[in-house]
Amino acid sequence: MNEKLFEKLIGEQPVTLEEALTLDQALEAQVEVRRAVSSLRESEPSLAWRSELNQRLLVGHKAARKSLVLRWIGGASLVTACCAMFLVLSRPTVKDDISNQHYVLTNSEGPAVSDALFTAHREADMESGMGIMEPVADVKPGL
């Protein structure tokens, strides 16, 4: 390998196609080093380590479930609150009631209720005054 390519490798600079080929060949030539590294000893963690991991996982698992339940409760509460708010806001207000009644009264066809009552009372009064109708006697129980 030439010095220029080596400096490029150290500087992690881009290499030409030819240099990339040279690098591949150099890597293939290092097969013995690869074998040496692959035969390095394995490290097996202890049973105590595994037991501790299980405990930590279990704690995390429970915490995650708890947080999930809390999120569900929070979400459900939020939905309920939104529904309640919607119902409150969509109900007609007192002002709306009054204006609606006024609308009914002013827009209804024919005499108003009060006018009708007054007319009926006056007619009944006149009829009894003219003798067409007997005045209604007050019936007192027990007499």
Partner: peptide, 15 residues
């Protein structure tokens, strides 16, 4: 490419 160059240098050091 960087992986390859690092691997080469690492093996070279080891060797």
């Amino acid at each position: 490419g960087t992986v390859k160059s690092r691997l080469f240098l690492a093996r070279a050091h080891l060797q």
